[in-house]
Design a protein around this nucleic acid. Structure first.
Length: 686
RNA sequence: GGCGAGGUAGCUCAGAUGGUUAGAGCGCAGGAUUCAUAACCCUGAGGUCAGGGGUUCAACUCCCCUCCUCGCUACCA
């Protein structure tokens, strides 16, 4: 098989960001898939380095620290601890789990940056950025707040407005304020180091779109294609930031600057490998620089660009590094029909699950694998969780193991009975089962884990079918030898299940091995029918899975709804009052009631309607972002309020000569402000 | 609007390079069975493969158009 091509494997999963705990979306996205892959490789006795770590730099962490009045280090210590602990308890079997604040990582990232610098790969550029004179520092996008130019939300960030979702540049904000001092920041020149990604386009095109056109996933290729083939191509990207939390830029004259978090994070894979290698007395370079090493990055779809374009470009430039053989990115997992959201607390948190469902780690692993978003976004529901547990794990897998073991105790006092020769049904069964290990292996090697898992379940199903067909509980009355053979075979199917389930259900696999007294059996033995031999004693049957009651899942759903309600209540808080304005300032605004006389959809926009309004003075053209909530015909003839003397602004090639005023509720729904009875167009409001 | 990914049985999803009656699991209906956590096993009903054109002897599979969902991106004065 192709896997034998490689002498060793370096397997990474995306570094989780240390600003919150882990939820099921993270698990389904990359941690469970990578763990399955790695456990399979280990079972095949391959040489694997499975590395990960917490991503602890970046602005979001410094902001969280500031909000909570603690240091960034305290923030990352807290979440690094929670995440590391949950991973361990959940059985994600990293060889090494590091963190990007570790000394080895700082050293490695600085070194690689210096290497690129000395090769002349960076372009130094000066650009204008906001600077807080009082705090004496440049402001990252997230450190600037202001009024969103799109929706008027007053607490939009410099990179994005959370209210309307539009992405912004800090200079777009109206009335920008520094989050550090509250002062108005000033624009000031600053120097940064840019990597000219455009230079790598030909190489990336060939490597991804040609060499890997067949073996990479559709969604990954599609994303790459859209970056490589459309628009103006890849733009130079700054690899440094003005900040004091992160890895200092190791160049003279770069004081007060750190490496861009997306430059340093993927290097975390390398530093994590280094730490592991040192502990184990291995050579880390073999895992990153030897052509016989297979490198695979497991990620979620939000990370595709960095893992397929930026990081490979960096590795390629460094020269002696290998590139990933594959980047199997999953899509997103929704929860009960809605997007998972950390800030809205719409999530199933791993650390809470581990406490509320003790000993049921494999159930969540099973459900998240069976319903993994491998090709498209999928939905996790508690009802599905319950159904898969009760109908599949309990009824098929657990039940089969239980039947075989209980019967052996009942008829043979817990000793494996003697094999007396095969009948045609047995031969047929063994032939069928013998094909499974290879089929499952092939699916795993193609990163088709849900398919692999379903094959594993078919194997258990076949066991149930075998018992139903041979009916040992009947033959025991007439033919003891036949019964002995059947149970010997059934127990060997169970033993096989312990091997085949090991990548997917590691805790369960261990339990089965404990029950049968098996040790050191790996993938190469799968398919053999003498894994457990006559005369060996097996332990009493212990239930592998337990039914989950309606009340349990109902409680979980209620918990979600409660947190959603709480969140909505919190969101309902009215915005704080703005600064006092003088009467004169107020009088400068020319507010009027106007009548909408025409409304048409703007061709090139989803959100804009082009309105013609009668102002009593003339007919003006106004663009308004209401197309998603109002149809043109709903608006014609209506009277609304308008700011008449707002400076005109061009959008999508059309000039807007004012602004229609709207009220907006917590959900972002817009309401027209209409006089309670009709009035003359142009009536002034004061 | 641009780009990307999707739209296949009630539900969750499979269906390289186009080729006989479109598959699986769950759910549902019926049957059989009692070793097993009332579980297992068998049988069955259910789809004009989002819609409309086109290419072809032949299309879920290729091309064009339309509609819907999700993601990135632009625009909601």
């Amino acid at each position: 098989m192709s896997e034998n091509k490689f002498k060793r494997y370096t397997i990474t999963s995306a570094l989780p960001y240390a600003n919150g705990p882990l939820h099921i979306g993270h698990l389904a996205g990359c941690y469970i898939p990578s763990d399955i892959y790695v456990r399979y490789l280990r079972s095949k006795q391959r040489d694997v380095a499975y590395v990960c770590g917490s991503d602890e730099h970046g602005v979001a962490i410094t902001i969280k620290a500031k909000n909570e009045g603690i240091s960034p280090q305290e923030v990352v210590d807290r979440y690094h601890g929670i995440m590391k602990n949950s991973f361990e308890k959940f059985g994600i079997s990293f060889d090494h789990y590091s963190r990007t604040s570790s000394p080895v990582h700082h050293e490695t990232a600085s070194q690689l940056f210096t290497d690129l610098y000395q090769k002349g790969e960076f372009d130094e550029k000066e650009t204008e950025q906001y600077y807080d004179a009082e705090a004496k520092q440049f402001l990252a996008d997230r450190y600037i707040e202001g009024t969103c130019p799109n929706c008027g939300y007053e607490e939009a960030y410099g990179d994005q407005c959370e209210k309307c979702g539009s992405s912004l540049s800090p200079t777009d904000l109206i009335n920008p304020r520094s989050k550090l001092s509250g002062n108005t920041p000033v624009l000031k020149m600053t120097k940064h180091w840019f990597l000219d990604l455009g230079k790598y386009t030909p190489f990336l095109k060939k490597w991804i779109l040609e060499d890997h056109a067949k073996d990479w996933k559709n969604n990954v290729l599609g994303q790459c294609r859209s970056w490589l083939e459309t628009g103006d191509g890849l733009q130079p990207r700054s690899m440094t930031r003005d900040m004091d939390w992160g890895i200092p830029v190791p160049i003279a004259g770069a004081e007060g600057k750190v490496l861009y978090v997306w430059f340093d994070a993927p290097i975390g894979y390398i530093s994590s490998t280094k730490e592991w290698a040192k502990e184990k007395g291995k050579d880390w370079e073999l895992y990153w620089k030897d052509k016989d090493t297979k490198l695979v990055h497991f990620i979620g779809k939000d990370n595709i660009v960095f893992h397929c374009i930026t990081f490979p470009a960096i590795l390629k430039t460094l020269g002696d590094f290998i590139l990933p053989e594959n980047v199997p990115a999953n899509e997103f997992l929704n929860l009960e029909g809605q997007k998972i959201s950390t800030s809205k607390n719409w999530a199933v948190w791993l650390h809470e699950y581990l406490e509320e469902f003790p000993g049921q780690e494999d159930v969540l692993r099973y459900v998240l694998t069976a319903n993994a978003p491998e090709t498209k976004d999928n939905d996790f529901t508690w009802k599905d969780f319950q159904a898969r547990n009760n109908n599949e794990l309990v009824a098929i897998f657990g039940n089969f193991v239980n039947r075989a073991v209980v019967l052996t105790h009942k008829y043979y006092g817990g000793k494996v009975p003697k094999h007396h020769g095969l009948e045609p049904v047995d031969e047929e069964l063994i032939r069928t089962l013998a094909e499974y290990p290879d089929k499952i292996a092939q699916s795993v090697e193609k990163y088709r884990f849900r398919e692999a898992l379903s094959l594993m379940m078919d194997f258990a199903r076949t066991g149930n079918k075998y018992l139903a067909e041979t009916e040992p509980w009947k033959t025991i009355k007439t033919n003891e030898e036949r019964t002995a053979t059947i149970l010997n075979i059934a127990l060997n199917i169970v033993a096989n299940l312990s091997i085949l389930s090991q990548p997917f259900l590691p805790f369960t696999s261990e339990k089965i091995k404990g029950m049968l007294g098996l040790q050191n059996i790996n993938w190469d033995k799968a398919g053999e029918m003498d894994l457990i031999k006559e005369g060996e004693t097996i332990n009493k049957a212990a239930l592998l899975f337990q039914k989950i009651e309606d009340s349990t899942v109902e409680a979980q759903i209620q918990k979600l709804l409660d947190s959603k309600k709480k969140n909505e209540a919190a969101k309902y808080k009215a915005a704080p009052m703005k600064e006092i304005v003088s009467f004169d300032d107020f009088m400068k605004l020319d507010l009027r009631v106007v009548t909408i006389v025409e409304a048409i959809k703007v061709k090139k926009s989803k959100k804009l309607l082009q309105l013609k309004v009668d102002t009593g003075i003339d007919i003006k053209t106004v663009l308004s972002g209401v197309a998603e909530q109002f149809k043109p015909e709903d608006l014609v003839g209506r009277q609304v309020t308008m700011l008449l003397n707002l400076a005109p602004k061009k959008m999508v090639g059309i000039e807007s000569e004012g602004m229609i005023l709207m009220a907006e509720d917590a959900e972002g729904k817009l309401k027209l402000l209409t006089p309670h009875e009709a009035t003359n167009p142009g009536s002034s409001i004061s």
